[in-house]
Every structure is written in C-alpha cells, then in structure tokens.
Design a binder for these strands. Structure first.
Lengths: 206, 206
DNA sequence: ACCTGAACACCGTTCAAGT
DNA sequence: ACCTGAACACCGTTCAAGT
C-alpha cells in the first residue's frame, strides 16, 4: 500500500474532481437546470459551501463539465474516423453518426456543453478551446477529403461549419423531441440520410 | 369613449396577456434563465401569486411565450417567401435568411422556444402545433420546388428536416457564439453560403 | 489549506383569507 | 372571479469562524 496520503485530507482525496464527477452523474439522471450546486455538494458528502474553495461559482463548475463533454465528443469523433480510414465519404458519415449517438446518449450533458453563456470569452477559455478541438476533427476530414478529390473546393473551416450546423441542429431537434427518431427508422438511418443530402445536394442535377 | 369596462377590473384589463408581454419584454433584455415569475408579476404591478390564477406554473407561461415566438417566426418565413414568389431556390434562400435574422434578433426568445421540456406531449400541445406550422412553411417550399423541378425527389417532410436542422444548428451556434458572424462578413452572406452548400452538395460533381 | 454554519437575498408554489 | 400575504422548502453566494 502506498501511504495514507490522500485519505488523510479532510473529506476527499480530490474534492474538485469528485464534484465534477458528481455533477455529471446528476446531470445524467435529472434534468439540466434542476441541478443545484447544493445537491452536488450534498452528494459528495460535503457542506454546501465547500465547492466555493474549488470553483468561483456554479457556472465555473458547469464550464468544466462542458469541457469534459467536449473532450468525450472529440474522442468519439476521432475514434469513428480511425475505424474508417479508407474513404472520405464514409469518414464523414461515420463521424456524423458518432456525433449524433454521443449527443443522444448524453442529452443533458450535451445541453450543458452548448448552454453556457459564452459572452465573456475570458471565462470558459478552456471549454471553448476543447470545443474547437472537436470541431477541428470535422475540419480535418473536409480538408483531407478535398486533397483526395472527394469534396468540392472551398475554405475547409467554412465547409466544416455547414457540417457542424447540420449535425448540431439535428441533435438539438432530436433532444427537444421536435423530430422523432422513429419516423426515420433509427438514428443511424437518419444521419445517413442527412449526410447523403448534404453530399449530393438538394438541387436537381442538371 | 366606449365605457369603463376593462378598467373596472381588479388591476388589469387582461392580466394574462400583460404577463405574457411582460415576460417577453424581460426575456428580450435579460438572459433567459435569470427570469423569474416573481419579477414578471412585479413588473405587471401585481402580487407574486397572481400569475397562478392564469397559468398552472412558470413553465406554462413560458410555453405561451414560446408559442408566440413560433407564430412570429412562421409569419417571418411566410413574409419572406411572399416576396420571392418567382423561384424555389430564392425562396429557400430568403426563408433561411429570414429564419436566421429572426432568431438572432430575438436570441433569448428563440432559446425559450426550443428550451421547453417537450417530454410530456400532452402539455404544450399548442406550442408544439405552432412550431409545426413554422416547419410546414419549409416543407411547402420543398414540395412546391419539387413540382417545379427544382429539388430532387424525396419525401418533402424529410427533406425539410435537413433544411431545418441546418438552419437551427447555425442559429444555435451563432447564439452560443461558437461561430462568429464576422468571420463570414454578415449573416446574410453566411446563410447564402450555407444554402449554396446545401443545394449543390459538398461532394465533387463527377 | 480546506471546510463548516449562520446569514442574506432571492426563488417557485401552496393555501387560507380577503373583496 | 380575481387577487393578496404569510408560509414552506428550496436556491446561490458571502463571510466569520473553526481545524
């Protein structure tokens, strides 16, 4: 056994991380905005003022929660393209499927990721940086696909916006139950349909 | 002068509508979730329990706020296509521009529209019906465009999802400041770019 | 350094009571 | 019928105080 090091602290080895994990766990079960800082503290077995030693306020904790969500998303996207190294089209499709599946598997967490007030950019710099990392995966697919002659020319950054907007919009409408998955069979079929539309375009080929 | 009819009531001619308008006004100024039912009542010059005579709870008031937002959106979309009756492409483009301009003109209101828990569908039936009405405008453009030979074949309902997802996603990313309008000149240019991508597709024409 | 308890100013919601 | 006031159980945040 190593030593008593961590256990000798007041209540936790790492209260900060325990609060983050607890918040994510609470979000997974309950609805997003019904989560309270006091309940996170309660679940961690600590007084309701203890979190303020580690986070400036509730929003700061949620920013870290968002950050971890974006890290997981980026990882899911990278994983999906690693399994589809052959072809840019299938990479894009796989990436879209992975994106949507991640989001609907963690709907409340996804809402937190995009529900933070990004007005003052000096706060939440980290979570913004990580979200751009996830976005960068899409951008890479586009630019590599252009090199391979699969995608039309254009600034990859801007073309990636189109893909991201489509996927993000689909996810939000699904989470909000404005679109029902059932109407399209399942989410994989839905994303494939979306991707096909995006690749081939809506206009009649002339 | 008509009579004393309305003024003779307790405090308002129509407290219900005054609360709705007050909520919309508050939302326009402050952030979405910082709005309290008590403050809406305060601004209407009424006790903080009075709203419960007209709305079951806070969510019920917000549902009506959302409903009015969707009505305004549907109207903006209809207006935009009325001005572009010539051609399906320009109708779709104008509709997209109108959609995005409406949303970024009323960002908090837009958030309320899509931020309501649509889990139990028996509540908020009205707001859901009106949102489908706005969606129907898109669907009509698609199906009329197909008849005119402008859009490729497919179920209009599903093709409209693609358009809606793209626009909704773009709007949400803009509101969240994940995408900055400035990077693309202005929002009109941004939407035109999106629409072009959607119509022509991302794949290289072969 | 890290945590607690009391305190403050707010919430949403309920309910008996007033006109 | 429509509104009020007190009351309840919650918040987020601050601050002096404890170990």
């Amino acid at each position: 056994v190593k030593s008593v090091s961590k256990k000798s602290s007041y209540h936790h080895g790492d209260l900060r991380q325990a609060l983050i994990d607890g918040a994510i766990a609470l979000i997974a079960e309950h609805n997003v905005d019904s989560i309270s800082l006091r309940e996170v503290a309660r679940q961690a077995g600590v007084s309701h003022t203890a979190p303020y030693r580690h986070f400036a306020d509730k929003e700061a904790l949620l920013a870290v929660v968002a950050e971890e969500g974006f890290m997981g998303l980026a990882q899911a996207l990278r994983h999906s393209i690693a399994l589809n190294s052959s072809n840019s089209f299938s990479q894009l499709e796989a990436c879209g499927i992975a994106y949507v599946e991640y989001a609907i598997a963690h709907p409340s967490h996804y809402r937190v990721m995009f529900g933070i007030h990004r007005g003052k950019s000096d706060r939440f710099l980290e979570s913004h940086r990580v979200s751009k990392e996830a976005f960068g995966v899409l951008e890479t697919i586009i630019s590599e696909g252009q090199t391979a002659g699969a995608f039309r020319s254009g600034i990859p950054h801007q073309l990636a916006w189109v893909v991201w907007s489509l996927m993000h919009g689909l996810v939000m409408l699904l989470i909000d139950k404005q679109i029902s998955i059932e109407e399209m069979g399942n989410e994989v079929g839905l994303v494939k349909f979306m991707t096909q539309c995006l690749l081939k375009g809506l206009a009649v080929v002339q």
